[in-house]
Amino acid sequence: MLNPRLQALFDDYASSHRHPTNRLTHKIAIPVIVLHVVAMLDWVRLVSVPLIPGGVLTLGIVAWVLATLWYLRADLKLGLIVSAAAALCFPIGRMIPMWGVIAIAAGGWLIQLAGHAVWEKKSPSFFTNLVHALVGPLFFVAILTGDYSVKPAQIDPSASRA
């Protein structure tokens, strides 16, 4: 059972993601966007630290730790899943050449924005509530695990006619 604060965040997030095709684009775009954000932040080297794998503390690691703390505070189970998935982005991102990460970023954002422009007809929710940039990955993990269900009232009735 979700805590009331997270339930409210998910309900608010769902209100900007009513069209099923938009939600589908997000299931593709959100993991791709998380990958490119982690990979790009990992390019920013902050300080040498021999105890860290690779020996360098990067902005990506700092952002991952801070995001993990937020996710775990929101929900332990979902937070662990999202944090572990984001952690996998470090080795994957390090294997992809810079041009590949940039191409992944462009593709992910195009898919994400197309979902909102073409199907949802509403700007992304993080434009008005920046915390939704963190909520998105957690929301879709909650959908996949069955910890959150989109209620019929949260589905765009015109979607069945599209």
Score class of each variant (00 low, 15 high):
51 L>V: 14
144 L>V: 10
97 P>E: 13
108 G>Q: 04
127 F>C: 13
60 G>M: 07
96 I>E: 02
146 G>D: 00
104 I>G: 00
109 W>M: 09
71 Y>I: 05
142 A>K: 00
71 Y>L: 09
136 G>M: 12
123 S>C: 05
137 P>R: 08
35 L>H: 04
90 F>Y: 05
71 Y>Q: 06
30 I>V: 15
150 V>H: 09
121 K>E: 10
104 I>C: 05
107 G>S: 11
134 L>M: 14
31 P>L: 04
140 F>I: 07
109 W>T: 04
24 L>D: 01
90 F>G: 03
91 P>E: 00
61 I>Q: 11
139 F>A: 10
107 G>C: 11
70 W>G: 04
94 R>K: 15
90 F>Q: 03
125 S>K: 02
80 L>C: 12
68 T>P: 06
33 I>W: 01
87 A>N: 11
9 L>W: 13
93 G>H: 04
80 L>A: 07
138 L>C: 12
122 K>F: 01
118 V>I: 15
117 A>E: 13
22 N>A: 07
56 V>I: 14
137 P>D: 09
19 H>V: 10
113 L>G: 07
84 A>Y: 05
82 V>P: 05
41 L>M: 13
122 K>G: 00
95 M>Q: 15
62 V>F: 04
21 T>G: 00
134 L>F: 15
21 T>S: 03
43 W>H: 09
113 L>T: 12
43 W>R: 15
115 G>V: 06
7 Q>F: 06
23 R>E: 05
34 V>W: 00
5 R>I: 12
93 G>M: 04
6 L>Q: 05
38 V>R: 01
26 H>M: 01
139 F>N: 08
72 L>T: 05
11 D>V: 00
90 F>P: 02
151 K>R: 15
63 A>F: 12
58 T>I: 02
94 R>N: 14
25 T>C: 12
13 Y>P: 07
13 Y>K: 07
92 I>F: 05
42 D>T: 08
93 G>Q: 04
7 Q>M: 09
73 R>K: 14
73 R>D: 11
99 W>L: 14
46 L>C: 05
85 A>I: 14
55 G>W: 05
19 H>L: 10
103 A>S: 13
31 P>Y: 04
60 G>W: 06
30 I>A: 02
127 F>Y: 13
37 V>Y: 02
21 T>L: 14
79 G>P: 06
121 K>Y: 00
85 A>D: 08
34 V>H: 01
36 H>Q: 15
82 V>K: 06
56 V>F: 02
18 R>H: 03
88 L>K: 09
39 A>E: 02
96 I>Q: 01
104 I>K: 00
144 L>G: 07
41 L>G: 02
